[in-house]
Simulated scan of single mutants.
Amino acid sequence: MELNTYPLVCTRGVVLYPNQEIVIDVGRDNSVHAVENAQDNYDKKICLFSQKELEQENPATEDIYSVGTLCEIRHIRRFDNFLRVKFRGIKRVKLNKWINGSLSDLVEVEILESEKQDTVEEEALIRMIADELDRMQGQDRFVTKEIVMEISKGMGGEFLSDKAVQGLPLDLERKQKYLETLGVNDR
C-alpha cells in the first residue's frame, strides 16, 4: 500500500469525482493556506474531503468522510476574503492520517483504484444509461447535451458513471456513498 501526502481542503456539501471539474469558493484560513501550499510545493495537487456536518467551522478527522478526491488545481481567482478555485478530480483516496503541517493541514492518503467487473454487464449498463439520458435530455435540467454527446462518443463505464452522478440532484450522503463505491458496475 503506497501512501502519499497532500494539502487538505474540507468541503461543505461538495463531493468531487475523478475526471470532473468544479469551482469552489475557498475562504477558511486553513483551506486558503492548503491551496497556496499545493500551488507552491505539491505540483498543484490537493485532496478534497467532504465534511459530515456543514456548520462545523474547524473540522477534525472524525468530522470528515474517510474517502475523498485527489485533485489538481486548475485555476485560482483571488478576492479580498476568499479564493475561487477550479479543481479537477484525479483519483479517489482513502484518508490514512491527518497531519498538522507548518504551512497547512496535510493528509496522508492511499490511492483507491476502481474495480473492473463483468465487461458484458458494463456494456449493457452503459447502453441503458445512454438510452435513459438521451430520453431525459431537454426534460431534465441535470441532463445536458454535453453528457449525451460524450456518451455517444463511447465513454467507458468508469468515466460515464462519474460524469452522470456529478450532475444529479443527490444529497451529500448519497454522493459520498457513490464516491466510496469502487466497483464500476456497482456505481
Results as ranks from 00 to 15, higher is better:
Glu173Arg: 03
Glu108Tyr: 02
Glu158Leu: 07
Val85His: 11
Ala34Asn: 11
Leu112Lys: 03
Glu115Asn: 12
Gly157Glu: 01
Cys47Leu: 01
Gly68Trp: 06
Leu182Ser: 11
Leu125Trp: 01
Ser102Arg: 15
Glu53Cys: 12
Asn185Ile: 00
Tyr42His: 08
Gly13Phe: 08
Lys45Tyr: 00
Gly156Phe: 03
Val143Leu: 05
Ala124Leu: 08
Gln20Glu: 11
Ser50Gln: 13
Phe49Ile: 05
Thr61Gly: 10
Glu150Trp: 13
Val9Asp: 14
Ala60Ser: 08
Glu173His: 00
Asp171Met: 03
Arg135Gln: 01
Phe159Arg: 07
Ile126Lys: 11
Lys86Pro: 00
Asp186Pro: 00
Lys45Gln: 10
Arg77Met: 10
Asp134His: 06
Arg187Thr: 01
Glu113Cys: 08
Val143Ser: 11
Leu172Gly: 08
Thr11His: 04
Gln117Met: 14
Tyr65Phe: 13
Gln20Thr: 08
Leu160Cys: 02
Gln56Tyr: 02
Val9Gln: 15
Glu121Met: 09
Asp131Pro: 00
Glu150Asp: 06
Leu95Asp: 03
Cys71Val: 07
Phe87Ser: 00
Asp40Ala: 12
Leu182Gln: 14
Ile151His: 02
Thr61Cys: 03
Val14Thr: 14
Thr69Ser: 15
Gln166His: 07
Asp140Lys: 14
Gly156Asp: 15
Val35Trp: 12
Arg174Lys: 15
Leu48Arg: 11
Lys45Glu: 02
Arg78Val: 08
Arg28Gly: 13
Asn19Trp: 05
Glu72Arg: 08
Val148Trp: 03
Thr144Phe: 08
Lys45Ser: 13
Tyr17Thr: 09
Glu115Asp: 02
Ile73Ala: 10
Met1Gln: 02
Gln39Leu: 12
Lys86Met: 12
Ile73His: 07
Glu108Ser: 09
Asn19Glu: 13
Arg135Met: 04
Ile99Asn: 13
Arg174Ala: 15
Gly154Trp: 12
Lys86Phe: 02
Val107Arg: 05
Val23Leu: 05
Asn4Met: 11
Pro59Asn: 11
Ile99Cys: 09
Arg135Pro: 00
Pro18Asn: 12
Ile22Ser: 15
Lys116Phe: 13
Gly183Gln: 00
Ile24Cys: 06
Met155Leu: 09
Ser152Trp: 09
Thr5Pro: 00
Tyr6Asn: 14
Arg174Asn: 14
Leu172Cys: 14
Lys91Ala: 06
Glu146Thr: 04
Ile64Tyr: 04
Leu54Pro: 00
Lys91Phe: 11
Leu112Asn: 06
Val165Phe: 12
Val23Asn: 03
Ile90Arg: 07
Ile90Trp: 07
Met128Glu: 11
Val32Glu: 15
Glu173Gly: 02
Cys10Ser: 09
Ser50Thr: 07
Gln20Leu: 09
Thr61His: 04
Glu72Ser: 10
Asp171Pro: 00
Arg92Glu: 07
Asp25Pro: 11
Ile90Asn: 06
Leu54Phe: 14
Thr119Ile: 10
Tyr6Trp: 01
Lys163Cys: 01
Gly157Gln: 01
Glu53Gln: 12
